[in-house]
């Protein structure tokens, strides 16, 4: 279980919620309302007061890199540090299989990162975020750079992960997508938050 208690994110009222295995929380709100900051705070990428636990293990007491291996944040803007795509993966065979499920050819792993389209980057960084099988996935607009077909494949993959017991927190601007995916919603409006089960 992912438990968030009195999490204070800049500009937002304290946030509390509990999510269990297989729950998918969709976070909604206007641009600049603090959705990404909330995800970053849960991943311990920004300083924030409050308590976050995963299966009763406190995030603050866990080594930060171990916490982030379990609670994985995927930014809307994908980051790459090597020349070749393949250099960013440690579980290459598994990554190629996941990439294939998202409509990507295995040969992309041998390409230079500079040759990738924004949609390919977004899907490959999603595949990379699955390495090490995190228990919680914090996805910031995971389909923002995708066409309809690719977005559909991505949603399918997200639902498969949910079925496998992964806890997901997804930021999206699409009402239709929120309807299709959410088991819970967190709506942010004027600094106030509303958590609801669906």
């Amino acid at each position: 279980m992912l438990s968030v208690k009195n999490l204070k994110v800049r500009g937002l009222a304290p946030i509390s919620f509990d999510l269990h295995k297989g729950d998918l929380l969709v976070v909604r709100g206007p641009s600049g309302s603090g959705k990404s900051l909330l995800l970053r705070a849960i991943a311990d990428l920004d300083e924030a007061s409050g308590e976050i636990t995963l299966d009763k293990g406190s995030g603050a007491r866990m080594a930060p890199h171990n916490w982030r291996r379990k609670v994985r944040f995927l930014s809307a803007e994908s980051g790459w540090w090597g020349e070749q795509v393949g250099a960013h993966f440690t579980e290459l065979a598994r990554a190629k299989k996941s990439a294939n499920e998202l409509g990507l050819a295995a040969k992309l792993f041998a390409s230079p990162v500079a040759h990738l389209s924004s949609g390919e980057r977004q899907r490959l960084s999603f595949v990379r975020a699955l390495e090490g099988s995190p228990k919680v996935l914090l996805l910031d607009e995971p389909t923002s750079a995708l066409d309809e077909v690719a977005a559909e494949l991505m949603e399918k993959k997200i639902l498969a992960l949910q079925k496998d017991g992964v806890i997901l927190v997804v930021v999206t601007h699409s009402t239709a997508q929120a309807e299709r995916l959410a088991t819970h919603t967190l709506t942010i409006e004027d600094g106030k938050t509303r958590f609801e089960a669906r």
Binding site: A43, R68, S75, W81, G132
Partner: peptide
């Protein structure tokens, strides 16, 4: 300049000096 790629590494569980080694 490399903030996005460094934070991607941090988010993936890379340790402090591993993420900023480049």
């Amino acid at each position: 300049r490399e903030r996005v790629s460094i934070e991607a590494r941090i988010a993936l569980g890379h340790k402090r000096f591993e993420a900023i080694e480049q």
